[in-house]
Amino acid sequence: MHELSLCDDLLSQVIVIAAQHNAQSVESITVKIGVLAGIEPLLLENAFAMIKVGTIAELAEFIMEIAPVIILCQNCGISAESATNHLLCKSCQSPETNLISGDELILASVALSVQTH
């Protein structure tokens, strides 16, 4: 259950960005979570709902984009979506594969309400 400590970091990042842009409020926060990131999306969402109370992000919508596992074979060049526990090339069975998507843990963007005079 490290989702809570992760959310703490996430919220500090968002608060810094909001302050840099003189935002009145944070409208939405978009995170990219790979299925191999070791994070349970539902727990992250619940943790964020708990931790945002009383901050500039209190009313922010929390948007999670889940990234599938995609591997690229260094041997035959084929890329394919894979199960989290089967990362060999589906075509040639080589273990020489690179994960090109699936372990992301990224704060992708923040939508801010900025008042203009």
Binding site: Q13, I17, H21, A23, E27, S28, L105, I106, L107, A108, S109, V110, A111, L112, S113, V114
Partner: peptide, 9 residues
């Protein structure tokens, strides 16, 4: 609404 791209882990 201003959307800020962050891309930070």
């Amino acid at each position: 609404v201003t959307t800020v791209s962050v891309l930070q882990n």
